[in-house]
Amino acid sequence: MHNVAQMDAVFKALADESRRKLLDQLHQSNGQTLGELCAHLDMTRQAVTKHLLLLEAANLVVVVWRGREKLHYLNPVPIQEISERWIGKYERQRLQALGDLKKGLEQNKTNKKG
């Protein structure tokens, strides 16, 4: 999968309240089975299954088999990538802007002195 497609899948997966609730559930208690997840959520088993598949496709949920038990884990790595790609970038620009402002003000000072 291309990186852009990967990020699209993450944004799409996060753009739904039920799926965000599922992620919050896993954050509270990692490695839950479908049955455990259903017990905490006001959703049908079918709906939870459907949402989990989408979260798995976006790599936000990772499945580990323990015997016949299918355990779901929250994988925050793609969210970290989004944070680096978007928030990190804007942060750098803000720092650059502050740096430029400082330079400008200091130059102004020396100009006035001169």
Binding site: M1, N3, Q6, N30, G31, N59, V62, V64, R66, G67, L71, Y73, N75, P76, V77, P78
Partner: peptide, 14 residues
């Protein structure tokens, strides 16, 4: 087998 606590994956073009 004990249930693992943390599981992370990443797909890398490498």
């Amino acid at each position: 087998m004990q249930k693992p606590k943390l599981v992370y994956t990443t797909y890398i073009r490498s």
